[in-house]
């Protein structure tokens, strides 16, 4: 089994290394200090298992998981974080609460070796992120993977989002980024007062709205500040009216 350790704290990685020393079938192929390194390393080494710390700078464990495609089996490690713990409980994910004993560690390892991590089988990373989110808070940035690099898009810079089959095309400041995600899932996590679902296939960032036009008997469209025109459905228009 090929394993990658991801934790920003050296002592935490040391522990994992120590605990894994006895395991004959396991080989550590990489150690990563942050989420960006982790995404690169997973793409490069294609590990079977990831030990993933949740609390890391810039990119937390859940966000890393979201960017991994395909996803290896994952065991999360965390110092106390009530929201992360809630997500784990809700989705029946196994996790290791720091500091953890060798026995506890081995227990988690066995579970993975026997049936593979539940994360990849039943729960998507997006669901995890959703449950782990601090209540009453909304997404303040969207992460997009492009090849081996990761783009962090603050939601303030978004213009609009468009559904494209399995992907969502995120239009931000003239650029387009593709993210493997459903529009509905993103709509749920964006602040509905600033990001309006104007159409089955479009979410508009309200700040970019220039005007709303009626172009046929019952059809409307919105014109953005940069001139782009997007269709508006009836329910979308109702939502728009409410906010304006």
């Amino acid at each position: 089994m090929r394993v990658i350790l991801v934790d920003d704290e050296a002592p935490a990685r040391t522990i994992l290394r120590e605990y894994l020393q006895g395991e004959k079938e396991i080989r550590i192929v990489a150690e990563c200090e942050n989420g960006f390194e982790a995404v690169k390393a997973v793409a490069e080494h294609r590990p079977d298992l990831l030990f993933l710390d949740v609390q890391m700078p810039k990119l937390n464990g859940f966000e890393v998981l979201e960017l991994l495609d395909p996803q290896p089996a994952v065991v999360f490690t965390t110092a106390y974080d009530q929201y992360a713990l809630k997500a784990f409980e809700v989705h029946a994910i196994d996790y290791l609460l720091k500091p953890f004993s060798r026995e506890r560690f081995q227990e988690a390892l066995r579970k993975v070796q026997e049936k593979g991590s539940p994360v990849t089988k039943r729960t998507s990373a997006r669901d995890l992120l959703e449950t782990a989110r601090v209540p009453d808070s909304f997404l303040d940035r969207i992460l997009v993977k492009a090849g081996s690099s990761i783009h962090v898009l603050p939601v303030d810079r978004l213009d609009y989002l468009e559904a494209k089959d399995d992907y969502v095309a995120i239009h931000a400041e003239g650029e387009v980024h593709l993210k493997k995600e459903t529009l509905g899932a993103l709509a749920k996590q964006l602040n509905p007062r600033r990001f309006v679902r104007i159409h089955r296939s479009y979410i508009l960032h309200l700040d970019c709205l220039a005007e709303v036009q009626l172009y046929a008997k019952d059809s409307r469209l919105v014109i953005l500040v940069d001139g782009t025109k997007l269709p508006v459905s009836r329910s979308g228009y109702a939502r728009l009216k409410e906010l304006l």
Partner: peptide, 18 residues
């Protein structure tokens, strides 16, 4: 601060081994 204590215990735990 409980968080601080957690973190410290964890660090000590890690160092004890080698």
């Amino acid at each position: 601060n409980p968080h601080f204590l957690f973190n410290s215990l964890n660090a000590i735990h890690a160092l004890v081994g080698n």
